[in-house]
Write a protein that binds this DNA or RNA. Sequence first.
DNA 1: GTTGGTGCAAATGATTTGCAAAAGG
DNA 2: CCTTTTGCAAATCATTTGCACCAAC
Lengths: 149, 149
Amino acid sequence: MSCDAEIAEILRRSGHRLTPQRLSIVRALRHGGRHMSAAEIAEEVHREHPFVDLSTVYRTLDVLKRMRLVTSTDMGSGDVLFEWAPEAPHHHLICSSCGNVAEIGHAYFEELERRLLADFGFEADVHHFAVFGVCRECRMSEPGDANEA
Amino acid sequence: MSCDAEIAEILRRSGHRLTPQRLSIVRALRHGGRHMSAAEIAEEVHREHPFVDLSTVYRTLDVLKRMRLVTSTDMGSGDVLFEWAPEAPHHHLICSSCGNVAEIGHAYFEELERRLLADFGFEADVHHFAVFGVCRECRMSEPGDANEA
DNA sequence: GTTGGTGCAAATGATTTGCAAAAGG
DNA sequence: CCTTTTGCAAATCATTTGCACCAAC
């Protein structure tokens, strides 16, 4: 697989060492094609390499994040979720009521990005946003209430 | 202070009990006028009531959040920061490089909000956003680099 | 060989929970 | 009174760290 060769190349060029653990972690993320917690990644990695420690997973993810190969997002699940950095950035609408997660493209954030740069010189790192709210279905089913228990 | 009376009223109406601990926690947040961690709130509360437990602070914040009187935001400090829900929602630009936090108005998010509602029927709960990125100053001082250690 | 990377075990630190006692309405 | 709330202590649980050993380069 040229996947592996590509990663090997990138790691080496950045002065990092290529280890089977790192390759396996990268593979888990790339082939997983979804958000994964460190624990989930470890679980996947363990199929090939049962002795890889969680701390190694965290340390590797840290390296990959710094290299911008991986994004991390707190989606409110209590742990942080990681994802192989997609070519096309995308974002998520998370329903606070039913927990459903929808994916939306980056276009929705471009205007914001532009204005933040123009007005403040702030280069927003809007690679992977989690927007909480209430989805259409939940809005329909719930009355226009106010206070809860 | 009518502050307290107001809170008392709100709590009572929602079926919650009014306790000195809760009043004190609310007061700390309202008068603090800034983001505070649970520990900071507890510290403040302890000036009046030295025996209020951290767990009580967390439980109370939970109640207040459900009543939409308090917002919570993960601003990357490792703990969650709470703030008395402002009348005018606002947001923050957090520089990943120097850590500086700037405040911006809600206007920047209105277009996004509108489009999410129109396109997906999703009612975004964009009360208190934390946008990470690089501020003007840091962009100026750093070269247009790519990879780091 | 060096240096960086790993596994293991133990620490950290925010947040949560069980429970009996105390207080609100 | 009856139920909610509290303080205390202990448990959770994701993430981090110290350290001796091992493996890339």
